[in-house]
Each structure stands twice: as C-alpha cells, then as structure tokens.
Nucleic acid binder design. Structure first.
Lengths: 234, 234
DNA sequence: GCATATTTGTCCGTATGTATA
DNA sequence: CTATACATACGGACAAATATG
C-alpha cells in the first residue's frame, strides 16, 4: 500500500492527476506549464525561477528542469545558459515565420486529396458549428478556440501524425502572440464566414478554391496580428 | 582559477568539448548521442540503460535523463514509462510518413520563389559537386552525406528557421532507417544525376519542373527504402 | 569595479515504485 | 511468487556564473 506522504503521490496531487499516470512527472509538469503559457497566464519575457516554480508545483528542481527543457524544445520557453528560462517573446518576424509554416502545412493537407475522409471533413464542419454557436452567445474566446480546432482539423486531413505534431506545436507557439489580441469580437468574428466557406469547398471537393481561400485567410490573419503587434511596440 | 576535478570541467572533457560550452551538458550529451544514433552505431530497439550510458559518458543520471528526454522528443528514442528508453525502430508506415513530410517541406521550399537567393542556389550546387567528387573516389557514404546536404539546402530555400528545424529533425529520424541500406553504390549513386538535374532546373528558375522531378525522386527513394525494409522483415 | 548574494548547473545518495527473470 | 534489477523522483551539496548593492 502506498504511503500518503510518498513523494510521488504528493507531486501527483499537486499536478492534479490522481489517476494512474500515463506520463512521467516531468511531462505532466510540462503539460501544466504549457497550458499556462498558451492561455497567456505568464507574460512573455518573464523569467521563470527554478526554485519558485519547483516549489509552486510541488516537484524537485531536477524534475522541473526536465519540463523546462521540453518546453524550450517546443519554442515556448527560451533557455539562456546560466541565466535561466524565460517565456518566449515572439517578434513580428516570428509571426511571419509561423504563418509561413501554417500555410505550408494547411495547403498541403488540403491538396492531399487521397487522405481526405468523411470523418475528417465532418470534424471541420463540427468546428465551424462550434464557432457559430460561440458567436451566438458572444463568447469570443470560444470563437477563437473553435477557430484553432478548425485549422487543426484541416492539418489532420493529411492523415500524418508527424504533421499533426508540427501543427500542434506551431499553433501553441502562435498562441504566445495571440494574447496581444484580447478576445475581442473584431479579431475572431470576421473569420467565421471564411471558415464556413472553406469548409463547404472541402465538402464539395473544390480543392483549388479551398486552397486559395485558405491562403487568403492566412495572409489576412497574419497581417492583422502583425499590425496589432507593431502598434503595441509603440 | 577552476580546479581540475571540478565536476563541470570533468564532464565537459568526457563529452569532448574543452572550449567554453555554448550548451549545457545535457544538450551536449544529447548531441553526442544523436550523432551515434544517426550514424547507426546503436541498433534500433536497443535498450539504453541510464546507469550504463551515464557512466560511459561521464555524466550523472539526472543529466543523462535530460538528454534522453530531448531525443525522445525528437523521435529518435522511445521512452516507455518505468521501462526505460529504446532506440526507435521505424516501421514501413513511419517511412511513408517521413517521406510525406519531406515532400511537403521540399516542394513548398521550391515553390517559395520569393525567398530564393543566389547564395541558396549555390549551396545546392555545392552539394551536387560534393556528391560527384565522393562518387569519383567510390566513397558511397560520402555520397549519402552529400545527398543529405542537397536536400537540406533545398529546404533552406524557404528561408525559414522553423522549416529548417523540421527538416533537420525529419532527416535525423529518417537516418534511423537508412542504415538498413549499407552504404552501397546501388542505393546512393542513382540519385546523383537526379540532383544534378534538379539543381539545374532551380538555377534556371524552372520551378514547376523542379517540383515534378523532386516529387518523382522522393517517391522512388521511399519505395526503395520500403522495399529494403520489407525484405529485412523476412 | 568589487564584494556579496542569488541562481543555475551538476552531481550524489537514497527511498520508492515497477517490470521481469 | 519472490528476488532482483532498474527507473522514478526527491533532497541536499557545492562549483560556477550571473545579478545586485
């Protein structure tokens, strides 16, 4: 029988996972930190002290460092030798780079006709519906989430786990910049009809047009984000 | 003055880096292990004991675990909870997935006309020349390396650091499978004229044709690798 | 520019849980 | 089914680098 003050049991509790762990403590800590980061709860450029976070999350410094390394590898944190880790602060150039990657992935997925399935397409439709429902009750943060789901579903049309992982990491990184746009109507709402249109084109197998629409969407979204970014720099 | 039996200094020596370290020991250990893995020095499915590798590389288990986590994140190792880490053994499905990613990246880079530069193109030409020179002296392993450089240079035409990183990791992963093909003439030589042709098409800005050639090359290479793989499974 | 405090980097020893011969 | 080996995770130690007054 496991003792209650076993160190493992305690740290598992702090990370909020009482069920049999599928991942190591380090990975679960990384998951918890990742959630904080993509929700914008820790501001970019913040220094994350090992001591402070280790005790806050109830794990040892060694374990926390494993989590830090994983997140640095995902570009969410920046590790400066002998100085510590910082929340990554994206530049306008990073945003451009990220959108270029998204365009590469999403257009390739749309073109990959052979791997499109009914289930994959209906996942798109579901995300569109979610977005409209969220807009109905003026939940602009929910509209943003639905939009993320929509584009994740587009990437998934390629039916390639490596591409899914790339997309997941790219979107996580992008969210670091996202929080400069407070979840306001103006940022998320305009894309609802775009998604609806792209979804319909994919349902109708109009891949050429879907690509064009998607590329236009990405370009506009990038521009809007960069503009907001530049405005903030002044 | 640093004492000679300082722990840091010793581990730095063992990892073979006496110069001021730009990376932490964990990262340098990961680099060293990565080199072993992509050179095929540690066979797929091999279990890598923490104890054994930590002492072999002259670092603590904590430090080694950091390196293991990074490499698992890069898909070179598989981490099974409470069982340890193993060298990843790619399946035929993995090979297909990897080539799909390469096609996505490399074709996008070729299409990305706006970012092509003279320097980028000449990097391609250099790789072609290296390949021919290696073939001249029947250094088939060298031909293989030149081929890797060629395709890395193609991805670099997109002028996007994130895409470069994806390509680097994808090729590293692919090399795990590569070693089923011993560095024999038959595997590497046929691609020399392909690379020459693709290079010339890019120099001439014949992007459509370059894409077609590249796609054909990737399909053939994938097929050859999968065939060799299936043969080995019997 | 210097002395000092703080933090990171790395190691070790150890308790505990898990898998396997 | 027990013994054993191994992985997991913690805490403490100290050198080295960096930040601070």
């Amino acid at each position: 029988m496991s003792t209650l003050n076993s160190e493992r049991a305690i740290s598992a509790l702090f990370v909020g996972d009482t069920k049999p762990a599928l991942a190591s403590t380090g990975e679960r800590v990384a998951d918890a930190l990742r959630a904080l980061l993509i929700e914008g709860r820790i501001a970019p450029a913040t220094r994350m002290s090992e001591e402070a976070f280790a005790s806050a999350m109830g794990v040892s410094r060694n374990t926390l460092r494993e989590a830090f390394r994983l997140l640095a590898h995902e570009n969410l944190l920046v590790h400066e030798l002998n100085r510590g880790v910082f929340v990554r602060q994206l530049t306008a150039a990073d945003i451009h780079s990220i959108y270029q990657v998204r365009e590469m992935i999403e257009l390739a997925a749309v073109r990959s006709k052979a791997t499109h399935t009914a289930a994959g397409i209906s996942r798109l439709r579901l995300a569109v519906t979610q977005g409209l429902a969220a807009a109905e009750v003026e939940d602009w943060s929910g509209v943003g989430t639905a939009n993320m789901n929509f584009h994740t579903a587009i990437a998934a049309l390629a039916a390639n786990e490596r591409i899914d992982a790339m997309m997941r990491r790219t979107l996580a990184e992008q969210r670091l910049a996202f929080h400069v746009m407070h979840p306001i109507r103006d940022f998320h709402e305009p894309y609802l009809p775009d998604n609806e249109r792209i979804c319909r084109l994919l349902e109708d197998r109009e891949l050429e047009e879907a690509q064009a629409e998607l590329a236009a969407y990405l370009e506009r979204a990038e521009q809007q984000l960069v503009d907001a970014y530049r405005a903030l720099e002044n």
